[in-house]
């Protein structure tokens, strides 16, 4: 059986936490689910529940990446450049630019 591989990308602080929840929802449905916080926004520190969601996602072989060092350090996210993200997207069955770009 081929499993779906899904990557959601976030470019708005307001969407990030829900977008990660959305990735977790797909991981629960037996998909490989990833999220990537791109360039901006600067994230807020995860609360306990959000940090737990990230751990659950990782337990299900998913992950959340970020393209800035600040966001990676703040919330223990894996660093990824835009070029690396692009290469990763090539392997996805579903690519989801999530929500809106912050004006």
């Amino acid at each position: 059986m081929e499993y779906n591989k899904v990557c959601l990308m976030y470019r708005n602080q307001d969407c990030t936490v829900d977008g990660i929840r959305s990735a977790l929802g797909l991981a629960v449905e037996n998909m490989y689910a990833y999220g990537c916080v791109m360039d901006e926004p600067k994230m807020e520190k995860f609360d306990e529940l959000q940090a737990e969601s990230l751990e659950m996602l990782r337990d299900m072989e998913g992950d959340v990446f970020a393209t800035t060092k600040e966001n990676c350090e703040l919330n223990d996210l894996e660093p990824l450049t835009i070029e690396e993200l692009g290469e990763k997207l090539r392997d996805m069955t579903h690519i989801i630019p999530y929500g809106i770009i912050k004006a």
Binding site: M38, D39, I82, E83, L85, G86, E87, L89, R90, I95, P97, I101
Partner: peptide, 17 residues
């Protein structure tokens, strides 16, 4: 949905290679 910026253009280029 809107005019692609440089980041989107870069991703489009890599994914479509």
């Amino acid at each position: 949905r809107s005019a692609p910026d440089d980041t989107t253009k870069k991703l489009v280029e890599i994914v479509g290679r």
